[in-house]
């Protein structure tokens, strides 16, 4: 099986550690991933903001870049959802001359793009990835992984198998954090109000770490909590699953709690 990593433009630029975590995690599980350098972006920001022609151009180059692979894994629920859900929409508006070829390429590539937890659970069929992370963690299901992809409890299954990790419930978990891409700046006040409510829920949960499958949402929630000096860290699912011991900047809780989930 030829596996490619789609890092996403956002992680590539802002959160390279998450990409490294994916590479290390999969290597630990015995899989080498290619990182095709021709990749750039999935086009989601353009699509969601209304720039469909630009998004279509980006989508063309995406499917071309990833066509040779059996599976494409990406540490982003929303980018995976963009490819799987919206590329077919972009096919609909393509120029007639190129529509057929584009449609075929999308039809071939889009279904093989997996968000990380889907890839681990459905393709590699693992649950215990051999990680260790002795801290209290809450999981926030990001909207696109929850509603567009339907990843369900896959991330939770993976987290529950992490040694030492104590998973706590996040109140009102399925509520949007308020990021919403350009919504965060176009409707900054509303976005911030939603972010503050999410941060309050995180504090209520008692978690040391808030985990999710999208760094964009985590950047928003983490930014709110950082401004509030809340003392809660945000970490991508990949970073926790790649971990093999205590985080240097986090306290571990008494060993009696370790069995608790």
């Amino acid at each position: 099986m030829r596996i490619a990593l789609f890092i996403t433009c956002f992680n590539d630029t802002m959160f390279p550690e998450t990409g490294k975590s994916v590479v290390r995690l999969l290597r630990r599980l015995g899989h080498e991933v290619d990182f095709p350098y021709a990749q750039t972006c999935c086009g989601q920001m353009h699509f969601n903001t209304g720039y469909r022609n630009e998004a279509r151009g980006i989508a063309r180059s995406f499917v071309e870049t990833f066509a040779p692979y059996d599976a494409v894994v990406t540490p982003s629920g929303s980018c995976a959802a963009m490819v799987r859900e919206q590329y077919p929409v972009l096919v609909g508006g393509a120029a007639p001359a190129t529509a057929a070829g584009f449609a075929e390429a999308v039809g071939a590539v889009a279904p093989r793009v997996y968000e990380l937890s889907e890839f681990l659970v459905d393709v590699l069929r693992v649950r215990d990835v051999g990680a260790s992370f002795p801290h209290t963690v809450a999981y926030h299901p990001t909207c696109h992984s929850l509603r567009s992809l339907g990843v369900g409890d896959r991330p939770l299954r993976l987290l529950r198998a992490v040694r030492g990790l104590r998973l706590v419930a996040l109140p009102r978990a399925d509520e949007c954090c308020g990021f919403g891409g350009t919504f965060a700046v176009k409707n900054a006040e509303t976005s911030a109000a939603m972010g503050r409510d999410k941060a309050a829920a995180v504090l209520e949960s008692g978690a040391q770490v808030l985990c999710a499958g999208d760094n964009s949402c985590l950047m928003h929630i983490g930014g709110v909590m950082s401004r509030q000096h809340a003392g809660v860290r945000v970490m991508h699912l990949a970073d926790i699953l790649a971990s093999t011991g205590p985080h240097p900047e986090l306290d571990t809780f008494p060993s009696g709690d370790l069995a608790a989930r």
């Binding site: 992680n11 390279p16 290597r27 911030a192 950047m219 930014g223 950082s226």
Partner: peptide, 26 residues
């Protein structure tokens, strides 16, 4: 508009792409 209500992370010293090239994927 972003930082009016929340902090933003400073960009990292090296992108994933640069790291991957420099270290052959680690």
């Amino acid at each position: 508009r972003w930082t009016a209500a929340r902090d933003a992370p400073a960009p990292p010293s090296e992108s994933f792409r640069s790291w991957h090239k420099r270290t052959a994927g680690g």
